[in-house]
């Protein structure tokens, strides 16, 4: 299908939006989608993701991945690439090596920094919280907000104590 905006390129993104009280649907090529700002909050990233996977696969599918299926949901990597959607949480383990280059392209990073759920273990959560608070402490000092800094320092010490006992 051709892009409904430029009528030149192949449409890869399906857009839904509300115009005058009704839902309208469009098929757009990645370029027009980007031009119209459809890369954010409430839109799908599938086209971008697909084209990332597409370029990554320039040299053909690696043989392991075309045969391997996720043990939990049964998805193969080519299915994931085609839909632009990962099958289940376990797919990220199964296809970690295959997904990593695209993840790096999207985020520029491959390592999480931020909240750890308590279910991942209190120790891990504490380590992460400590890092985040240290970050905030440095900022507070840089801004010469010493009262806030002192408060943060106390909290950090408290957490460190808990980490040792825990």
């Amino acid at each position: 299908m051709l892009c409904q905006s430029c009528k030149k390129n192949e449409a890869t993104t399906h857009i839904k939006r509300v115009v005058n009280g009704r839902i309208e649907e469009y098929d757009l090529c990645p370029e027009c989608a980007k031009k119209m700002g459809y890369t954010s909050l409430f839109s799908n990233f599938e086209s971008e993701w697909n084209s990332l996977l597409g370029s990554f696969f320039g040299g053909g599918l690696p043989s392991r991945t075309s045969a391997t299926r996720c043990k939990s949901c049964g998805a193969s990597f080519s299915e994931i690439a085609k839909r632009g959607m990962v099958g289940c949480p376990d797919c990220y383990e199964t296809f970690y090596e295959e997904l990593l280059p695209s993840i790096k392209k999207i985020h520029g990073n491959t390592r999480h920094n931020g909240k750890f759920p308590s279910s991942s273990g209190r120790q891990l959560a504490i380590v992460n919280e400590l890092e985040s608070m240290q970050e905030q402490l440095n900022e507070a000092i840089a801004r010469q907000e010493f009262e806030k800094a002192a408060e943060l320092r106390d909290k950090i010490n408290e957490l460190k104590g808990e980490s040792k006992n825990g």
Binding site: I106, H107, T110, H112, N113, G114, K115, S132, E135, Q136
Partner: peptide
């Protein structure tokens, strides 16, 4: 970007 940058 959501990976590698904390919420804060």
């Amino acid at each position: 970007i959501t990976l590698g940058i904390s919420e804060h």
